[in-house]
Amino acid sequence: MPNSAFPYRLYLVISEADCRNSNYLQVAEQAIKGGVDIIQLREKNLSTEQYTAKAIRLKEITDKYNIPLIINDSLETAMNVNAFGIHVGNNDKRPTEIRNAWKDCQSLGYSIEFIEQLQNKETQTADCLGISPVFNTATKKDTIREWGLEGITAIRSLTSKPLIAIGNMNLSNAEAVIKSGADCLAVVSAICSAPNPEKTAYELKNTILKSLQIQ
Score class of each variant (00 low, 15 high):
residue 204 L to N: 01
residue 134 V to Q: 01
residue 73 D to V: 03
residue 76 E to R: 11
residue 121 K to G: 00
residue 72 N to R: 05
residue 168 N to Q: 13
residue 106 Q to T: 00
residue 136 N to A: 15
residue 144 I to M: 14
residue 123 T to Q: 12
residue 130 G to C: 10
residue 189 S to Y: 07
residue 25 L to E: 00
residue 31 A to D: 02
residue 67 I to Y: 02
residue 97 E to I: 08
residue 70 I to P: 05
residue 159 T to R: 03
residue 79 M to G: 00
residue 167 G to C: 03
residue 44 K to H: 11
residue 84 F to R: 04
residue 55 A to L: 08
residue 131 I to Q: 04
residue 111 S to R: 05
residue 200 T to C: 07
residue 115 I to C: 10
residue 213 Q to P: 00
residue 149 L to I: 09
residue 134 V to G: 04
residue 137 T to Q: 11
residue 58 L to P: 03
residue 127 D to H: 14
residue 189 S to F: 06
residue 145 R to S: 12
residue 144 I to E: 15
residue 118 L to Q: 06
residue 13 V to C: 09
residue 197 P to C: 08
residue 208 I to W: 01
residue 72 N to P: 00
residue 114 F to K: 15
residue 63 D to N: 15
residue 125 T to S: 14
residue 209 L to E: 13
residue 105 C to S: 10
residue 78 A to C: 10
residue 34 G to W: 00
residue 37 D to Q: 08
residue 198 E to C: 11
residue 9 R to L: 11
residue 80 N to L: 06
residue 161 K to H: 09
residue 6 F to E: 06
residue 120 N to W: 05
residue 116 E to S: 14
residue 100 N to R: 13
residue 27 V to Y: 02
residue 208 I to Y: 03
residue 143 T to S: 13
residue 141 K to I: 06
residue 99 R to G: 04
residue 67 I to K: 04
residue 156 R to Q: 12
residue 43 E to G: 02
residue 104 D to M: 09
residue 33 K to Q: 15
residue 165 A to M: 06
residue 130 G to I: 04
residue 22 S to E: 13
residue 25 L to F: 11
residue 82 N to A: 13
residue 8 Y to V: 02
residue 114 F to T: 13
residue 190 A to R: 04
residue 86 I to E: 03
residue 93 K to L: 12
residue 77 T to C: 15
residue 40 Q to Y: 04
residue 153 T to L: 12
residue 73 D to F: 07
residue 98 I to G: 01
residue 34 G to L: 07
residue 92 D to L: 05
residue 124 Q to V: 03
residue 66 N to A: 15
residue 7 P to F: 05
residue 55 A to I: 01
residue 141 K to P: 04
residue 121 K to N: 12
residue 12 L to R: 02
residue 24 Y to I: 05
residue 17 A to T: 10
residue 198 E to A: 15
residue 165 A to V: 00
residue 140 K to R: 13
residue 88 V to C: 02
residue 185 L to C: 06
residue 5 A to P: 00
